[in-house]
């Protein structure tokens, strides 16, 4: 673990989430008492404090709320990854999620892949080494 700052440290409860992600599935938590979904996952419902909460596969669809193309991060291994697109997205099920948008565009070094990034852009989940990230859904209208 030493020397890398991008590795999540799962615990007994979140192991389910990361195991699913390793298999290419994004999970959220949904409360049976109030019906609301949440992310990041908690043992109980942060909205109503019910403990009647279960894992649920997310659709993997999301829209882009905001983003920043990061050019400086001296924590390994991010320095090798810059520029990358830090993003916050709204999952179709409601919860908001911190993530990265990958493959936004082929971009020359140092240039933000700005063209396709816009508020509300439709995204779909992808997985990079067991980590859920998002990519832009290229318009399928008429195709």
């Amino acid at each position: 673990m030493a020397g890398r700052f991008d590795l999540p440290e799962p615990d007994a409860f979140t192991r389910t989430y990361w195991d699913a992600a390793a298999e290419g599935r994004l999970l959220i938590r949904r409360c049976r008492a109030c019906g609301r979904a949440h992310h990041y996952p908690r043992e109980f419902c942060p909205h109503c404090w019910s403990e009647d909460v279960a894992w649920e596969p997310a659709s993997g669809r999301a829209t882009l709320y905001t983003w920043s193309v990061v050019h400086r991060n001296d924590l390994p291994p991010f320095a090798e990854r810059t520029p990358y697109v830090a993003a916050v997205v709204d999952l179709a099920e409601g919860p908001r999620m911190m993530t990265e948008v990958v493959g936004a565009a082929e971009s020359p070094a140092g240039e933000p892949p700005a063209g396709e990034l816009s508020a509300g852009a439709e995204l779909e989940v992808a997985f990079r080494e067991g980590i859920p990230v998002f990519r832009i859904v290229r318009s399928a209208i008429g195709g």
Binding site: F5, L7, E9, Y40, N73, L75, M98, T99, E100
Partner: peptide
């Protein structure tokens, strides 16, 4: 990288970002 931070660290959300 523990607790809620495990859902943030993979993405390089720096303070400035």
């Amino acid at each position: 990288t523990r607790g809620p931070l495990q859902f943030e660290v993979p993405y390089g959300h720096t303070l400035i970002a």
